[in-house]
Design a protein around this nucleic acid. Sequence first.
DNA 1: CCGTAAACGAGACGGTACGTCCAGTCTTCTC
DNA 2: GAGAAGACTGGACGTACCGTCTCGTTTACGG
Lengths: 198, 198, 198, 198
Amino acid sequence: MPTKVAPDPSRRSETARRAILAAALDLVGKVGYAKLTIEGIAQAAGVGKQTIYRWWPSKGPLFFDAFLTLAGDGEAAALPDTGDLAADLKLVLSATVDELNDLGFDQTMRALHTEIVHDPNLAADYATRLDGPMRELKKERLRSAQRAGQLAEDVDLDVAVDLIWGPVLNRWLHRTAPLTSDYACQVVDTALRGLQPR
Amino acid sequence: MPTKVAPDPSRRSETARRAILAAALDLVGKVGYAKLTIEGIAQAAGVGKQTIYRWWPSKGPLFFDAFLTLAGDGEAAALPDTGDLAADLKLVLSATVDELNDLGFDQTMRALHTEIVHDPNLAADYATRLDGPMRELKKERLRSAQRAGQLAEDVDLDVAVDLIWGPVLNRWLHRTAPLTSDYACQVVDTALRGLQPR
Amino acid sequence: MPTKVAPDPSRRSETARRAILAAALDLVGKVGYAKLTIEGIAQAAGVGKQTIYRWWPSKGPLFFDAFLTLAGDGEAAALPDTGDLAADLKLVLSATVDELNDLGFDQTMRALHTEIVHDPNLAADYATRLDGPMRELKKERLRSAQRAGQLAEDVDLDVAVDLIWGPVLNRWLHRTAPLTSDYACQVVDTALRGLQPR
Amino acid sequence: MPTKVAPDPSRRSETARRAILAAALDLVGKVGYAKLTIEGIAQAAGVGKQTIYRWWPSKGPLFFDAFLTLAGDGEAAALPDTGDLAADLKLVLSATVDELNDLGFDQTMRALHTEIVHDPNLAADYATRLDGPMRELKKERLRSAQRAGQLAEDVDLDVAVDLIWGPVLNRWLHRTAPLTSDYACQVVDTALRGLQPR
DNA sequence: CCGTAAACGAGACGGTACGTCCAGTCTTCTC
DNA sequence: GAGAAGACTGGACGTACCGTCTCGTTTACGG
């Protein structure tokens, strides 16, 4: 006996859907995630609140959806492969650092991160839709490096990816110290070379 | 012309302070951080709301304070140093993994993490009061390893710490995959050896 | 340039119409007039909301229509005429009192009354379709009494009707005191005899 | 185990209370009772909605309270007593007719009436606070008439009051016909003389 | 030892947003 | 083309907390 009947997606208004997602993303940039409200989104999108509640359970998944739909599409660019693994990684990681230092992007990404951290469902969704594909590209570049003899054969590529990108993400999140390209390069070098003496 | 006079800390009721901090920490475990409210804390602590607002600006710093005061005391234990760096790191990191897999601790830590991520002031406070001392202990162990010839002399110890602890924290936060001791050990081995072939 | 074209009554579905009226009357008895909603009626009648809005402007007239159509038909019974005016009036008025004391009927009648009070159009409709015919029957009985010499020749029959039925209606509406047959009889006696000493 | 604790009336803000009552009465005159909303009242009174809900359960009792408090005070004037009962009653009833024909007052009174009709608690309250005292004044005038030999000794005064005022109220409510002073006079004459021939 | 000033508990206040319900309109698909 | 179904904008509902603001009531210090 379901109390709440699921709405029929085939009748869904695409206009309203896009207006809502766009308004959500727009407002996060303007007022920040903490002050983002369903009411505000509805108003900005010219939509009744019920239309939001009909399709999303709450602010988190809505924002998440907005991000993935509007910001996440067409992310399929492969990592550069010049033959020099260290240089390529430094380039990519520096670009990431620059993005994260952009104030608008920073705010949006922190909001996204928080939702992921608190909602396992969103985390799974994120893993499938964004992190998974990105990680595959990263691993592809590392596999290429293995073929070129620049990466040990027996390294677990997931661990390798974590080793390179993890520290940067953490420094960004916790603001332990300023997040710079230099730091990114240091991480790459250290990860590649290892901590032990050689 | 200050409209708001600062309260006199010397007259502060220690009873009320501890009751508030205890109630805050207790409630986070019970209802989760999202449903933690000042009103709820006040009621649970048997305290007027004003008494909370007099001493803390908002929920975040209050919870942060509660965590540091009640959970963070007596953290001063040095890392084990058996002479085998890899083994010691694996031991410590596995213990961390176990803690993070504890449901109550997990929830509290995620709340703490979120506050840090969103409030630079708290991030600074956290760096000073918790992360700083811990990091110093970690670096101390690494310095010892350098003296023992188990760690390259020219490695930046901050980067080293990030390389070892960062991946574990990230996997915990994003739930990319189950967080296990095995993973922790893999990270330690890979970080020490480096990604390049030797 | 009328935006809204009137629907063609000849194509109207009699099935839907009756289902709607029946559902409306049924629901009033179940949930009360205040909680009666167009949406609820549509659902109970197995009818689209638009079908209701096509034929009725709002809840009030719809309910009014429902009442007149389903409860008001066949009201054409003349008042008893045994030759004893007082006895006949007491009989009729006591019956009315009993009806009004019936809980279901009471609720429905109060709803009807409220609509009439607030909407002059409905009041006119009511006067034409229900109150008018009823009043005519009452006056007919009074005219008969005049012919029998039981009622003064120069009495305005409308005023007479008001004098007899008005007090009962008011006591019912305002619940000044319990509505009983005794009261009805007292009203009849007093109205017939007059307030002045004789 | 009461879920909802009663608020402490001694801490109640008299300012807010009066602002709310005034706003309610004011808005009824402006937008009508049907479009009177708690939200509107709160806004007009410069008050939080909770402050309304803290002290009144819903729109009905609030409006009722507003009417009694602001319009009902100082109603203690006795009915005129010139010695001529019929004349005095006609005067009073004509004044009532005039009031009821005033558009603003009409709307407010209909709203009040509806609330009384639908809520027995309000009916009781009304009987105690407004109708009771008024009725007592009316009966006092009638008693005086009895002493003067203008009213039969054995007439039930409550019934007498109903006989005189009831018809006017009904005609006003149902708009059976225009409500005029003439009608009021007719009612008085007929009630006094009685319907029977003399 | 007592007056007094600050912190305290309690909780009412003006607000904001919540999530729900329903009004009345619009759209789509069926009979 | 009327009707069923139901998604849409809009707006009020009643609730939960926010952060501010009195209230009396302790509490502890200085005269």
